[in-house]
Design a protein around this nucleic acid. Structure first.
Length: 580
RNA sequence: UGGGGGAUCGUCUAGCGGUAGGACGCCAGCCUUUGGAGCUGGCUACCUAGGUUCGAUUCCUAGUCCCCCAGCCA
């Protein structure tokens, strides 16, 4: 039988993502570069990112995307394919195809015209399967799923041959064709490779190559009722596309002999090589598709784009930039040992990026009213505020200042400890871009809660004024009460209270969900300029953190997500103290 | 207890026979109209035991610990 091989396609590169830096070295990169230098695979480098369209991409996928596309980008003539590994009709959906494409593009990568679907190979794959049968290397097994499991043996005991293992080539061919023709119900027959039921590697104990699935496939509809399994479809898809380096995660190491067997048996002109690396884990969050799906389905989070999730859309909504995610993926490296990267590292990269580019604004999350007794009523001054001290070209803007302001509750303490140098009775602080004020009085309600503080200001200390250079211990942010816009702010904390890898298996993992992973603040007050901005705009709220305008925003009530807090020396001191 | 992998600062990672480097984190100081940013300095690591060698994180041997595999998922 003649098998059809796709002609080697043109290898024009069209990547839009810019290389952040010369790529960090890792063992896969070294190997690929060495192969290329040695002329292996004809000196070509063709990688692929092969998601199954059965869920949304997360930052673990981003690692793989950066690796595969990054490698192709680095090497002259290198290409990276996007291939949808859609061999299981019961879990897949075109919506996932759309979202995966969108997320990859958002991350800054482009597969140009190299988009493929394993489902496009179904006919070719089928013919390879018949060829295997003809060679006596595959057979139709009619054991039930449970029987197959029982015959497989265990980790320490060899398996036993199925009674159907000795069927003739003619019978196998006939049965396989009838499987395809739809004569049999799901589960009644499978096509298996005839390898070695006693192999110490369980994956080689006659793995299933095809199963019957009377289910509509999102792309092929009802054209097929048998579907190839991963172990058969994947190596062949790689070979068909001329993939040179097939990068996957560690759990497939045991499958490599099977991968190589399938490729060799196919007589493919291309011999892709599988190389495995450790998947990404990040502390205090979940990365498995199964667990993410569980969170979404049980409505433990708001959806796939919940900013608490490590999904690409979650991170995007949270305010992460593609640049920060790429820098993170570049810096975590690629190796073979299981690792859990600290969330602090991801946070470092988004802080670094946003520090350089984000507009500074004034926002008060927990307002405390301040009245400046000696400031004239009805007067509104405009003070100049710097938009981004890291970027002088960002310019300045005007901020309204008046007699009644809001400051942050956390910036006032009636009985401050020694290390606290913000506002307190009798103390002076600078109001950012405006005057130095001194607290003269505190008003409380019946329950003793502070409702308002009174201050006096020093008129000569305004920025640019004669005594503007006076030093005070602290500068705090504020908004003018009459001008500020009410807003909602969503604060995010770690999804989990522990790292699942370090925790007892018996306990239901959802019991480690952090009940305080989302903290919604209402009644916040932000500077007027934030009212009209578009969702997705990122800011630094001065002294607080980086925030991103959420799509839930309305003109009446803008909503902001906290991407990450600013590093806060006082919070650290304060927490360290209360912890003792 | 079968097979396949892996063990280097608290965390990730480099090192490929010449005596451990980087990043995050943390600590201290400088600077600062963001307790941010920046700058300076500091902190802590080769799983264990033998062997080879002038010399071992690197090579060998024997252990120890961790991860993966018994889907008709990928």
């Amino acid at each position: 039988m003649r098998l059809i091989w796709y002609k080697e396609r043109d290898r024009r590169v069209s990547f839009t993502a810019m290389a952040e830096s010369s790529a960090a070295s890792n063992f896969i990169r070294d190997l690929v570069l060495a192969d290329r230098a040695a002329g292996k695979h004809g000196g070509r480098v063709v990688t692929r990112f092969p998601p199954e369209p059965n869920g949304y991409l997360h930052i673990g996928h981003a690692k793989s995307i950066c690796l595969n596309f990054g490698l192709a980008q680095e090497v002259p003539g290198g290409v990276c394919h996007l291939r949808f590994d859609d061999t299981n009709p019961t879990t897949e959906d075109p919506e996932y195809v759309r979202s995966i494409e969108e997320d990859i593009r958002w991350l800054g990568f482009d597969w140009a015209d190299k988009k493929y679907f394993a489902s496009d190979y179904f006919e070719t794959l089928y013919r390879h399967a018949e060829a295997l049968i003809l060679k006596g290397k595959a057979y139709v097994d009619s054991l039930s799923a449970e029987e197959i499991r029982a015959y497989r043996g265990t980790l320490t005991e060899p398996g036993r041959d199925s009674p159907y293992r000795t069927r003739s080539v003619e019978e196998n061919l006939d049965l396989f064709r009838r499987m395809r023709a739809g004569e049999f119900r799901d589960g009644t027959h499978v096509l298996r490779a005839k390898l070695d039921m006693a192999s110490p590697n369980i994956n080689l104990r006659d793995p299933v190559l095809y199963r019957i699935r009377h289910a509509a496939h999102y792309r092929t509809g009802s054209a097929w009722c048998i579907y190839p399994a991963y172990d058969f479809a994947h190596p062949l898809s790689d070979a068909i596309e001329g993939i040179t380096h097939s990068l996957c995660t560690l759990e497939f190491e045991d499958h490599r002999p099977l991968y190589d067997w399938v490729v060799a048996e196919s007589d493919a002109p291309h011999r892709p090589q599988q190389i495995e690396f450790a998947r990404l884990n990040i502390s205090q969050t979940v990365m498995s598709k199964r667990k993410l799906l569980e969170l979404v389905e049980k409505k433990l989070v708001a959806g796939w784009d919940d900013p608490r999730l490590p999904t690409i859309r979650g991170l995007r909504r949270r305010g992460y930039t593609p640049e920060a995610i790429r820098a993170f993926c570049e810096h975590i490296g690629v190796a073979k040992r299981d690792a859990v990267v600290e969330m602090a590292l991801l946070e470092h990269f988004i802080r670094e990026d946003l520090n350089k580019r984000s507009q500074r604004v004034m926002a008060v999350l927990k307002p405390l009213k301040v009245v400046i007794d000696n400031y004239p009523e009805g007067v509104v001054e405009e003070v100049d505020a710097v938009n981004n001290p890291e970027d002088p070209s960002a310019g300045t803007r005007k901020l309204p200042f008046s007699r009644t302001l809001y400051i942050e509750q956390d910036d006032f303490m009636e009985q401050p400890p020694k290390e606290f140098f913000r506002l307190a009775p009798g103390r002076e602080v600078r109001l950012r871009y405006a005057y130095i004020v001194q607290c003269t009085d505190v008003t409380k309600d019946a329950s003793g809660r502070i409702t308002e503080i009174r201050c006096r200001y020093d008129p000569d200390t305004r920025s640019g004024g004669t005594r503007a250079q006076r030093k005070v211990k602290a500068t705090i942010h504020w908004v003018s009460a009459a001008h500020a816009v009410p807003a909602e702010v969503r604060l995010y904390n770690p999804l989990l209270t522990a790292d699942l890898s370090k925790v007892a298996e018996e306990r239901e993992w959802t019991s480690y969900l952090n009940p305080h992973s989302l903290d919604v603040l209402t009644g916040c007050r932000v500077e007027p300029s934030l009212q009209a901005s578009t969702p997705g705009t990122r800011y630094q709220f001065e002294r607080l953190g980086y925030f991103c305008k959420d799509p839930d925003s309305t003109p009446a009530l803008p909503v902001f997500n906290r991407t990450v807090s600013l590093k806060d020396a006082w919070a650290r001191l304060d927490k360290g103290k209360t912890a003792k």
